[in-house]
Simulated scan of single mutants.
Amino acid sequence: MTTVDIAAPHSVCDQEVAIPVGAVELAAHLRIPDHPIGIVVFAHGSGSNRHNPRNTFVVEVFAGHRLGMLSIDLLTSAEAIDDAKVFDVGLLGSRLAIARRCLRSSPICRELPVGYFGAGSEAPAALWAAAEPRDNIRAVVVRGARPDLAGARLGNVMAPTLFVLGGLDIRVHTVNRRAAAAMRCEHRVTVLAGHGLGSADPQTSQRAAYVAAMWFAEQLRAHRGPAAGPTQYRDVDESVG
């Protein structure tokens, strides 16, 4: 594994990298397809890492939409069994922001618009990090779980944000809509037909990957800026492919 070797002058990249954060190094994988239109930082915490088949499927789907991806484990293996770190939204969010800033060291990546993708327990971390004012995040997708745990920072997110929910994830619908209602940026809540977004329902998770890829492709291709605008709340029930 190479430490922050993301400055290689190649337009196509597929390599393991390590990102130093304080006293630890975070494991990550950088995948840049030919002629990328943007790059997404995909956050992983406990219980699911960059090698999980469901997550590698997401990377492939995104590459098919000409989206690069930095797929990063926000916790070391030792930290992943520490509940204090697993549920520390500020810790995970700050590490995600550091990973985004490391992309500026790459001649290829620094020119690409950047988005955040947080699924499950990493959903609030993605929103926490997206609220950082100087990082110029262009799009966010959060999938399930508790994005409301980003708290007061939700109102500071300026990037267009998509909330993706499984049709039978009723227990998370309320908290996701509560989080969406706290935002001032363009946002959409999309409910996929089918079951939840857990590993027990791979088809819905696969549809979620395509929905997320289309959102990022649309937003990053447009290079839409982070300026705040009036709230645009759209609650969409959607079944994809």
Rank of each mutant, 00 (worst) to 15 (best):
G64A: 08
V59M: 01
D148K: 00
R224Q: 09
V4Y: 09
S94E: 12
Q206V: 07
E218R: 06
R54K: 06
G241D: 15
R95K: 06
A125F: 01
A159I: 05
T3A: 10
A227L: 11
A181N: 12
L165M: 09
V21I: 10
A228K: 11
M1W: 10
R31L: 12
A222Q: 07
P160I: 05
Y210S: 00
A80S: 15
A126W: 00
Q219T: 05
V164T: 08
S105F: 04
P202C: 11
S48L: 04
V24R: 08
S48W: 02
V86R: 02
M1I: 08
T56Y: 01
Y210C: 04
V40W: 02
R110W: 07
A182T: 12
Q15T: 09
H10W: 12
P9H: 11
I98Y: 08
T190P: 04
R104F: 04
T76S: 11
F87L: 06
T190V: 14
A222N: 07
R143Y: 07
V58N: 07
G118V: 05
A126P: 01
E186S: 13
H187L: 15
A131T: 01
H173Y: 06
G198V: 02
D73I: 01
A193F: 09
A212F: 05
L220Q: 02
D73H: 07
A213C: 08
G144E: 03
A152K: 13
N156M: 05
H195G: 13
P147N: 04
A78C: 11
V141D: 05
V86Y: 02
I170G: 10
S106V: 03
R184A: 11
T2D: 14
P107G: 08
L74Y: 03
G45D: 08
A193P: 05
V164G: 02
A27H: 05
G241Q: 14
A145N: 03
G22L: 03
R138D: 14
P113M: 11
R171F: 04
S77A: 13
G151D: 02
I39Y: 00
I6G: 01
R207C: 02
P53V: 09
A179M: 06
A228Q: 13
D237I: 13
S11M: 14
E238R: 08
G155K: 08
A208N: 04
V61P: 00
P113D: 08
T174L: 04
I37H: 12
S71V: 00
P124D: 00
A125L: 03
V4G: 09
I6N: 02
M214L: 13
H35W: 13
L75Q: 05
L168C: 14
A180E: 09
R146L: 03
D5E: 11
V175Q: 00
F57E: 00
P160V: 14
H65T: 08
M183E: 05
V172C: 02
R31I: 07
P36G: 13
I32G: 00
L96K: 10
E79D: 13
V86T: 15
P230H: 14
Q15N: 12
D34K: 15
R101F: 06
H173S: 02
V12I: 10
M1R: 10
G68S: 07
H187N: 14
V236P: 06
L74T: 01
G90W: 01
L75D: 00
A159S: 09
D88C: 05
P160L: 15
R207K: 15
V142M: 06
D237Y: 11
S239E: 13
A7W: 07
L67M: 15
V236M: 09
N136H: 10
P36A: 15
P230C: 15
